[in-house]
């Protein structure tokens, strides 16, 4: 017994190292449960506060560009108002939509932390569960895709950026509807790869790629990007390189989309699977 204890004391450094290393790597592998852990919620709150401060400084430095963007946005909105008043038809239809048929709800949020240089990039937003944000909501910027909300605390939320090896997005080619998963390959922040498009699909450089709407997170038809290159892979599928339309380096304000019918859709899909 004593010699065993002596032995343990002698190798305690190695044992402790292995223990801590296993713990760290299990954190890494269980990324999902990490984001749900309560102490992470607390640190998200703290980190969020600090990021707000540093972001305020950064914002001050880019006031000119921000002003210009706001002016452009104002112009665009003014144009929309004018056109709504001109046509009664559109006005009525939009009222109908909100009462009977609204599926998606939009809200705006501001990015307070963002990265593009890692393999697993995340974005932090300045709104959280108290402002109605929930995990699994979609994030877009000026009509093109940004990411999916991963975890929320009271006033902040973390978004998995499209520039993250863990995120796959169901997308399709706009002109003929062929769909497949799109994911980032870790090569630069401007391009991603679309897989599983069969060889008989007619595609050309410059074709538009949009979300397919199958995933219950994204509405159909949100812009992802344009085909920049494609090659045959494995004999029966194309591997398509897509130029992303979102400029992840200059993101500032985003819109968050909540799917009002998400739970209903997931429930019915689950039911169908169980009946099988």
């Amino acid at each position: 017994m004593r010699s065993l204890l002596n032995f343990l004391v002698r190798i305690h450094f190695l044992l402790l190292f292995i223990l801590i290393e296993v713990f760290s790597i299990s954190l890494l592998v269980n990324r999902n449960s990490f984001h749900k852990a309560r102490f992470v919620n607390f640190t998200r709150q703290v980190a969020g506060n600090v990021f707000v401060k540093s972001n305020n400084l950064k914002q001050y430095l880019s006031l000119t560009e921000e002003n210009q963007r706001l002016a452009e946005e104002n112009n665009r909105l003014l144009n929309i108002i004018e056109s709504t008043y001109k046509s009664d038809e559109i006005f009525f239809r939009s009222v109908n939509d909100t009462i009977f048929n609204q599926r998606y709800q939009y809200t705006s949020a501001k990015i307070i932390n963002n990265s593009i240089n890692k393999k697993h990039n995340f974005i932090t937003l300045n709104k959280g569960s108290e402002q109605g944000l929930r995990p699994e909501m979609a994030v877009v910027s000026e009509g093109s895709i940004v990411g999916v909300i991963k975890g929320v605390s009271n006033n902040y939320s973390t978004v998995i950026s499209l520039l993250n090896l863990d995120l796959k997005i169901s997308s399709k080619i706009k002109k003929n509807g062929y769909f497949g998963p799109l994911m980032w390959e870790g090569q630069g922040y401007q391009s991603a790869i679309l897989n599983e498009i069969p060889l008989n699909a007619d595609i050309q450089v410059g074709d538009t790629i949009i979300t397919s709407g199958f995933s219950s997170i994204y509405p159909e038809g949100i812009l992802i990007g344009f085909i920049s290159d494609f090659t045959e892979k494995g004999g029966s599928f194309y591997e398509i390189k897509v130029n992303l339309s979102t400029d992840f380096k200059s993101l500032d304000n985003v819109n968050v989309i909540g799917n009002l019918l998400q739970t209903e859709k997931l429930n019915i899909e689950k039911q169908a699977e169980q009946n099988d």
């Binding site: 801590i20 760290s24 790597i25 954190l27 980190a47 697993h120 995340f122």
Partner: peptide
């Protein structure tokens, strides 16, 4: 030595929490 490992883990985890990469920096620092 044990304190070395412990403080390395704390340091790595602190950086991890700010960059959303659980366990990555902590395992490398340890």
């Amino acid at each position: 030595k044990w304190f070395l490992l412990f403080i390395a883990f704390v340091l790595g985890l602190t950086v991890d929490l700010f960059s959303n990469t659980p366990g990555m920096h902590s395992s490398a620092t340890v």
